[in-house]
Design a protein around this nucleic acid. Structure first.
Lengths: 191, 191
DNA sequence: GTCTATAAAATGATAGAC
DNA sequence: GTCTATCATTTTATAGAC
């Protein structure tokens, strides 16, 4: 199946370029050149530029959705669930850094019906996260702060981990997870 | 000075559109239409689309630089300085939400020499922040965690505050600052 | 599966009338 | 200060030869 290999290669290179420069700043000529072929040849493997973006973004988004669903349905404590969410993000950041960058920067350029599908997943993910935090407050495992501020702050740090991780070296996955847990859950100030 | 008013209006509308859709997804025709004029008329007030992006981004970046310089040269404690940095971000988020979105999403599309100028300011800002954290660790005001992880996590939360603030209502500036301080500096877990 | 050639549309920007 | 008309370029995508 050489054809499938080529297709895979196209998606990977597209994810990398979209992640670096943004969807609109990467032309089909740019992508083709990076692959060593002409732009017209791309259309023998894919049907449109939009298909590239949708496939890249939806794939990562589904991985997040599956991960969160597992966490939600487990019987762990709230703090353990929060640990697991952080680990999920760190894992995906390291495994799918480019696709994650595309998702973060270019989800706005999805077209319907993919846009709605993506937004539904995103909303559902956030709602599940919110539920974990609310349960934590109720069980007195989590401080009684504004739920939306907590949700946003933790989530945005986790979502943009890739921006930072791709630049720095010398921090491995386990170490990064541990540091993020300390920081986001326990803060940085010594009392 | 009616001309200056019009120019101001163009920059504000551009910031809003760039912030919503991204620089490359907003055409000069889109911008003109939002202002109720034709695209060609824009060029009586500005010289290029690039000028719009540069002016918008550099202006906010300079506000951050000035704010950070004041904080760095004050004689406050580390924790107070961290409080001030958080307040600086919350203030700019509320005052210049659209320009901040342009900065976050589209700084990559700046051209030289503006790109280098921006990156220098950004690097200097981060270096000052790093110094505050390092001093905190030394004085035992801040936990001895990985400096880069702390820097990244706090900064990314603050930088993307606008994404979230523009959606939600009912949280005022003082309240938001207070919540962010609690969360970023002291964490969310009850010990 | 890749190429050349080309269509069809959109884009940033300019010239010149009013 | 805004308009119409237009240019030069770039863009996504298709047709058809090899």
């Amino acid at each position: 199946m050489k054809g499938e290999d080529r297709k895979e290669e196209i998606f990977e290179t597209a994810a990398q370029l979209f992640g670096e420069r943004g969807y609109n700043a990467v032309s089909m000529r740019d992508l083709a050149e990076a692959l060593g072929i002409k732009a017209a040849s791309l259309y023998n493997h894919i049907s449109s530029k939009q298909e590239l973006l949708s496939t890249i973004i939806i794939s990562v988004a589904e991985t997040f959705t599956e991960g969160m669903n597992k966490i939600i349905s487990s019987r762990k404590s709230v703090v353990e669930k929060l640990d697991d969410v952080i680990e999920l993000h760190v894992r995906i950041t390291i495994e799918s850094s480019s696709a994650l960058a595309s998702l973060n920067n270019d989800w706005r350029h999805l077209k319907e019906p993919d846009l709605s599908y993506f937004l539904d997943m995103r909303e559902s993910y956030e709602e599940n996260f919110r539920k974990i935090l609310k349960a934590g407050v109720k069980k007195k495992e989590v401080k009684k702060l504004n739920i939306e501020v907590m949700l946003f702050t933790i989530l945005t740090s986790l979502r943009t981990l890739n921006q930072w991780y791709s630049k720095k070296q010398g921090v491995d996955q386990a170490e990064l997870s541990a540091q993020m847990k300390q920081l986001l859950l326990h803060g940085i100030i010594l009392d």
